[in-house]
Design a protein around this nucleic acid. Structure first.
Ligand code: ZN
Ligand code: ZN
Ligand code: ZN
Ligand code: ZN
Lengths: 136, 136
DNA sequence: TCTTGAAGCTATAGCTACTAGAGACATTAT
DNA sequence: ATAATGTCTCTAGTAGCTATAGCTTCAAGA
C-alpha cells in the first residue's frame, strides 16, 4: 500500500495531478485509511505509470482513457489502439511542420541589423505579413 | 470607422477575440456609437493586424504586449525586440526537437503487427518506458 | 505518552488564449 | 414599419494541470 506521496515519487506524477486524474475518472478512487487518506495498490501504481508515460508521449487525456480501456481487455483486437496512435503521430507531424515554417520565418526576421525600432525587421515584419515568405 | 464585425473581417480575428484583447489591454477601448457599439479607426485596424500576425508567428500575448510597446517608440533601440524574437525562436526550436523525439518513438510503436491487445506494441510500450529508445 | 513536523484532506481559484451561449439592444435594408 | 442581421454584456467552458487556504492525520523522536 502506498500513500499518495509515495505514489507520486514512484511515478513522477505530482500529487495534485494524481487527485485531478482521479476526479477525471482516469484512475479509480482508491481505498482510504481510517483517517481518510488515499491508499494505493500496485495496480494503481502501474495504471498511473501507464498514464504518465502516455502523457510524456503527448497523448491527450481522452486518448489515454481509450487506451486504458483497451489495455484492460487483452483479448480484444488492437486496431483501435493503432488508430489512436496513428492519429496522434499525424498530429505530431502536423505540428512539427507548422513549427518548422515558423522557425524559418523567425530565423529570417531576427537577421535585423538596424539599431532602432523605426527600421527594425522584426517590428516591420510583424506589422506586415506581406514581408513573410510562407503562409501560416 | 469600422464596426467590430468589419474589423473582424479585415483582420481575420474573431469578434469575441477582439473583445478579449480589449479586456486584456492589448488594444485600447475604441470610441462607441450612440448605441454603445465599438467604432474602430485605421489605427485600431493596424494594431490588431500586428497582433494577429504576431500570434500567427506564435508569440505569446505577453511578448506581443512588449513588441507593441516598442513599436510605438520608433526612436528606441531595437535590441529588446530582437531578444523577444530570439527567445521565441529558441522556444520553437526546443519544441521542434521534443516533437521529433516523439515522432520517432511513435513511428516505432505503431509498427505493431500483433492483432490483439495482449501482444500489442502500442500498449506494451505505453506500459513500460524501458521499451523506448529515447528519453522524453 | 506526548509532541512536533511532515504529509494529506477538500474546496476553490488561477493559468493561456480563446470560444460559445443567453438574452437584450442597435443598426440596416426593404 | 418590420424583419434580418449585428452587437452588447456577462457567464461559463475548453485542456491539463498548479497553487493556495484552512484543516486533519500520520509517524517518529523524547
Ligand atoms: Zn531590429
Ligand atoms: Zn507572415
Ligand atoms: Zn497492436
Ligand atoms: Zn518512453
Amino acid at each position: 500500500m502506498f500513500s499518495i506521496g509515495q505514489l507520486s515519487k514512484r511515478t513522477g506524477v505530482k500529487i495534485p495531478t494524481i487527485r485531478y486524474y482521479e476526479q477525471m475518472g482516469l484512475i479509480d478512487a482508491p481505498e482510504r485509511s481510517e483517517g481518510n487518506q488515499r491508499r494505493y495498490t500496485k495496480d494503481g501504481l502501474s495504471r498511473l505509470s501507464f498514464i504518465r508515460h502516455s502523457r510524456e508521449l503527448g497523448f491527450s487525456v481522452e486518448d489515454i482513457r481509450g487506451l486504458l480501456n483497451l489495455s484492460q481487455h487483452p483479448e480484444k483486437p488492437c486496431h483501435d489502439a493503432h488508430s489512436i496512435a496513428a492519429q496522434h503521430l499525424k498530429d505530431v507531424q502536423t505540428r512539427i511542420a507548422k513549427l518548422r515554417r515558423l522557425e524559418r520565418e523567425l530565423k529570417r526576421i531576427t537577421q535585423c541589423d538596424a539599431d532602432n525600432v523605426a527600421d527594425c525587421a522584426v517590428i516591420e515584419t510583424l506589422a506586415d505579413h506581406g514581408l513573410c515568405e510562407t503562409e501560416h
